[in-house]
Design a binder for these strands. Structure first.
Length: 637
RNA sequence: GCUGACGUAGCUCAGUCGGUAGAGCACCUGCAUGGUAAGCAGGAGGUCUCGGGUUCAAAUCCCGACGUCAGCUCCA
């Protein structure tokens, strides 16, 4: 038979397997093969003639296959150590794997080395992996004999016509769809990472299983590199940097709410004013609305029915009132205050006020998941014929704002769900307009079929940070329902009442959350426009304090955030401190500088300094800050 | 909320078999007046998260609450 790899043709005997092909093609490091979208083990006979892709560890699908077998090896190891264990599911992805299991003994970090040792033993034994297709009856009998009740349940849930396969390696057998490696010996560097609770099939009403997490690599070096990356992420953790850089803190008495220290407040305000500045350019008007409302409002908006469990509800003077979790109902009231003309639209109302959402205690996570926060929120009221242009404008704001941080982003369009409100034709048109707006903005996007909100389709944006991690931030939602619930109208050319469409949108999403992401993205080393202190002046000895303070005063007068390190320490100490505090620039001033009226400028991360006239440096830095440049450019001309 | 782990000085952490607590950094004081990543010496700082219990004696063992962390679930 004839098959090709990378377009190169190979002639193989009938019944040859993918492993034979890998050999013929010189792909010694192939782990599996992909043909017509399906992934096959190397021991499987070639399914058809045509092009075959060899999957290596570097390919995400190849890594997934590798981890899939690794999770079986981990399960095998656990079974050897604890024969009574029962297994549920054990999936894998390109990063690693886990296996859910029921086991009396509570696994902990102390158990991991023994499990890893056993995994290495299984790898060294280099068991061949084999696949077997069983009839439903035989499969049930096999797992009944083994006492694997979860496996029986999984089989029972499989559709009538499903192919039921089991995989064996050594004494271990598992119900599994595959695909797998052809032998266990490839998994040279396994690592058990952590254990956590998880419910079978995500069902909270059922007893909790232990979920054992792991990862694995073909080589020890690969594993070590991975662990280094994990360390780097830990080093950048915004909760850690937030404390080290004095940006924000948390306190037991207010879980889920941040205390913003002066430095953090500065960064926060920079983000807010950046947003204000950009949005004002696009015709947004900023408003402030109440943050406590009577339930009537939440009944009108529908929150009382759908969102009550996420709201803080307060008793006050024999009355129940609620803190707002969102601004939209308030903005709708504002819209309805006066008669609106078609000429008034689009009306763009922005608000940065406080929002409170009750989040379950176990879900809180630094600034990334809080109970009290602020959004760069806005609601745009527009006519149906303005949807396309309105969305395009929001996408432009998105481009400007994310571009300033050097953040890449990925876009998803979520369409009409099964249960929706409003006319189908309007949905179709709105979805088409969103897609066209995305196209015109030159954005590639993925469609999440049926994932829209019940009141309208939406665009979700994930930013990608310096470590390649993705975070959901911006959201743009079309809403046909609120205007109806709040009886919003405008007068058209003929003076007739029409219903506007509403767009909910936030670019940062939550400012708290976005700031947390930025801390991790920049590893705490903010560009100068965001840095809490932009420049620190370091006198060489106490003789130079006067000059240093004069320089600082001058920089402050120029609108820069400057401070003097007046501590009675040697220069080296202050330089070290300035670097540790990630201050973008520090200026060394001693006899030479005082005499010549200059400063010795050193940018964060640089090793040498440049002597520059005071006013020249002030001008350069002011330019850099005003342009919100990402790079530090004020050391050299 | 659920499962598990953890909670000791401002921070990072040590504290053995139950016998009333320690380091480094930071902070303060003194000496040193210093030129591009840590000068030397001294000092102060703790209701060991909180509340119960066991014990002659609890940071340590037990129970509960709160918080944090890793997940799960949730995030119309």
């Amino acid at each position: 038979m004839q098959v090709s790899v990378n377009g190169k043709l190979y002639e193989l005997a009938a019944g040859a397997c993918y492993g034979d092909l890998a050999q013929a093609a010189g792909a010694q490091d192939a782990l599996a093969a992909r043909q017509e979208g399906r992934i096959y083990e190397l021991f499987r006979p070639i399914a058809a003639e045509g092009e075959v892709e060899m999957l290596r560890f570097s390919d995400p699908d190849g890594a997934m296959v590798f981890h899939h077998t690794s999770t079986h090896i981990m399960a095998q190891a656990v079974r050897r150590l604890y024969p009574e264990v029962q297994f549920a599911i054990g999936p894998a992805d390109a990063e690693g794997f886990f296996y859910d299991m029921q086991l009396e003994h509570q696994l902990g970090p102390d158990d991991f080395p023994a499990i890893e040792d056993e995994m290495r033993r299984i790898a060294e034994a280099d068991y061949p992996v084999s696949r077997e297709v069983l009839g439903r009856r035989d499969a049930e009998e096999l797992f009944r004999e083994m006492g694997e009740t979860f496996k029986l349940e999984i089989i029972a849930r499989l559709p009538e016509d499903a192919e039921i396969s089991v995989y064996r390696q050594g004494e271990f057998v598992d119900l599994c769809r595959g695909p797998h490696l052809s032998r266990t010996g490839l998994v040279r560097a396994p690592k058990v990472l952590s254990v956590a609770g998880a419910y079978f099939a995500g069902d909270e009403s059922r007893p909790m299983l232990q979920r054992l997490y792991g990862t694995s690599f073909p080589t020890q070096e690969g594993l070590e590199e991975h662990l280094r990356l994990v360390e780097e992420a830990k080093r950048r953790d915004h909760r850690r940097l937030g404390r080290e850089l004095d940006l924000f803190t948390f306190h037991d008495v207010a879980p889920g709410f941040a205390f913003w220290q002066p430095a953090g407040t500065t960064v926060y305000h920079e983000l807010e004013s950046f947003s204000r500045e950009v949005q004002a350019r696009f015709g947004y008007r900023e408003v402030m609305t109440p943050w406590i409302f009577r339930p009537d409002l939440w009944q009108t908006s529908g929150h009382w029915g759908h969102y009550k469990q996420n709201m803080f509800i307060v008793e006050s003077e024999d009355e129940t009132v609620a803190l707002k979790p969102m601004n939209c109902p308030g903005h709708c009231l504002m819209y309805a205050e006066t008669v609106r003309s078609y000429r008034d639209l689009p009306l763009r109302l922005a608000e940065y006020g406080p929002l409170s959402r009750f989040e379950r205690s176990g879900t809180l996570h630094g600034l990334l998941r809080v109970r009290g926060f602020h959004q760069d929120d806005a609601h745009i009221f527009l006519r149906e014929d303005q949807i396309g242009a309105g969305i395009e404008e929001v996408l432009e704001i998105l481009r400007v704002i994310y571009g300033t941080f050097g953040l890449q982003y990925r876009v998803e369009l979520s369409t009409r769900p099964e249960e929706y409100l409003g006319e189908r034709a309007l949905w179709d048109r709105a979805e088409a307009e969103l897609a066209q707006a995305l196209d015109r903005a030159g954005l590639e996007f993925r469609i999440n079929e049926g994932d829209g909100a019940f009141y309208g389709p939406k665009i979700d944006v994930h930013v990608i940070d310096a470590l390649g991690r993705q975070w959901q931030c911006a959201t743009v939602q079309l809403d046909f329902q609120f205007p109806l619930r709040f009886h919003l109208e405008y007068r058209d050319q003929e003076g007739k009442a029409q219903t506007p469409v509403m767009v909910h949108r936030a670019i940062f999403g939550s400012i708290e959350r976005f700031l947390g992401i930025l801390v991790e993205h920049f590893a705490g080393a903010f560009p100068s426009w965001l840095a809490p202190v932009q420049v620190r002046v370091l006198p060489v000895s106490d003789r130079h304090r006067g000059y240093a303070e004069a320089v600082t005063a001058e920089l402050r007068a120029a609108g820069l955030r400057a401070e003097t390190d007046l501590r009675d320490e040697k220069l080296g100490y202050k330089i070290r401190a300035a670097q540790a505090d990630k201050v973008p620039y520090f200026l060394v001033v001693g006899d030479r500088e005082a005499e010549e009226g200059t400063v010795s400028v050193r940018a964060r991360g640089e090793s040498g300094s440049e002597a520059v006239a005071r006013e020249v440096f002030a001008r350069r830095l002011t330019d850099e800050v005003r342009a919100r440049r990402l790079e530090l450019t004020a050391q050299k001309a």
